[in-house]
Structure formats: structure tokens, C-alpha cells
Amino acid sequence: MVCSVPAPGRQRNSPKRGPAGRRPALRRLLGRGLGLAIAVVLLVSGIGLPPPATGPDILMAPGFAHPLGTNDIGQDVLAGLLAATPNSIAIAFLAAAATLALAILGGLAAACGGRIVQALVLRLVDILQILPSILILLVVAASLEPGLVTLVLLLALTNWHDDVRVVRALILRELTRESLQQARLVGYGWFYLSVRHLLPPIAPELRALALESVRRAALKTAGLGFLGLVDPQLPTWGGMMQDALGHLTTPAWAWLMLPPAVTLALFLLTIQRLSGDPSGRTAAEAEA
């Protein structure tokens, strides 16, 4: 096997400038900075909030007292959303970070390791990629009822292999650069080389990968919550959507389902926008 050839069809372009690219850079920066600031404040203030209190107002339609209505044990949907949003976002980002870290480790091993290590890692990745990871996620989550930390680890462990080949291709590309070759000759260790020379140039691609991971993690977390497989003391969008399942033929499904679903969709769209034109990546795939 020739291991210096990047896998076809997996190489990604740096994020293309989408429609946002036509706006003045300053405005764009401001917009993003503001959004980011709001997100950070929301996140930090809200992680770990308990579920909202139960009450006698059961399945109330949205109104004055409860702007988004109440669920079937009288919990205010808006309060639930305020508690669930930071958790769900935090899980998605932490899981993406953990996934990326694992993928970088795997990528480094697959690019710079010995022949046997390289072959082993790549084969493992191939095998994991054809496994439906949702099966494993389901079985494990069913037994653990994961809370925030467990969930993050679980998501990372069932996701990391998707990114290894891309990371490896990027690293191989960098390895051929002269500055790196020189640094290597000077005799720096692998850790120093990776952190100072190897990873910084591929940061934009890694960022795009991480954002894609955020999307996947958010969707999977919501899915597990929807199946009731997340710690019930940890409010999430998925858990809120689960409330709607028993009320599909009554009007209540709308105020139980739509607030978390719309918030999740908006979050996913925002992430998609941050990572550039959605077709950028797939165009790259098609060109291969």
C-alpha cells in the first residue's frame, strides 16, 4: 500500500466564502463577534441549569403566563428551552473538540507512525467507517443514561474515525513543506513539530472539520434525547422533543415540538454558515 497518497474524495477545500463574502469584512467580523459573545454568555450562564419546576398548569397553550406553553407535567416550555439550549450547545462543541483531538491523534499516527502503525490505524478507520455507529451509540447509551461528560466522550468515540483520513491527508501535505523538513532536521521532537509547524497551517481545514462535527454531535445528542437515552436531569432539545411524542394528534405537539426543533435547526444552520457555503465541501468531493 502506498501511504503517501491522500485518500481521494476526502480532501477538503478551505471554506469558500459564501454570500457573506460580499459584505464588508469589518461588518462581518462585528456581526460574528456579537453573535459569538451572545452565544458565550448564554452558554456559560446556562450550563447545568436544572429542569424547570413542575406545576399544575398542564399542557397550556402558549399565552400570557407561559409564552411558549407548558408540557404535560406543567413545566414551562420557554424555561425548558433556556435550560436545554446551553446544555445542548455545550455538548455539541465539547464533543466536536474531543472528536477533533482524537482524529488529530489518529491522523498523526496514520501519517507519521511506522508502517505497521499506519496500516493498523487506517484499517481500523476503514472498518469503523462501514459500521453503523448509531447501533453502538444506542446500546451504550441505553445502559448508561449518559450525563454531560459521558455523552461527550461517547460521541467522540463513535465519531472520531470519520475525520482521520482527512486529517492524515492534510498532515501529509504539510510534511512535504520545506520549513517543516528543516525543523525536522534540526531535531525537534514530534510534539513540538506538531504544535508549532504541522497544525497551524491546516487550522482552517481543522476548523471546518470541527464545525461539521458540531453539527453531527448536535443531531446525535438530540436523537438520543428524543429516545429518552440521556440523563433526565440534563435538559436537552431532544428530551424536550420527546414530550411531543404522546401528543401527535392534539394541538399540543406544536408547542412541544416546534420550539426545540426550531432552535436546533437554527443552531445547525448557524454552524453551517460559519463553516462556509454548504456546497463547498461536496464540490471538492465531486471534483476528485
Partner: peptide, 28 residues
């Protein structure tokens, strides 16, 4: 028992008894 348990934990909390609720799958 999820709904009953949440409501019950809530009542205890109002009385000043902290309750850590685990809703578990049958095996757990």
C-alpha cells in the same frame, strides 16, 4: 415513572429535601 418522579422530586425540593433523580432503563 418519569413524570411522577419529576413531580415528586419537585415537591421534596420545595420542602427542602434535595433529591437526585435517576430515570433508568430497566436493566440499570
Amino acid at each position: 415513572m418519569r413524570r411522577l418522579a419529576v413531580t415528586l422530586a419537585d415537591q421534596f425540593a420545595r420542602f427542602g429535601l434535595k433529591v437526585a433523580l435517576s430515570v433508568l432503563e430497566q436493566g440499570a
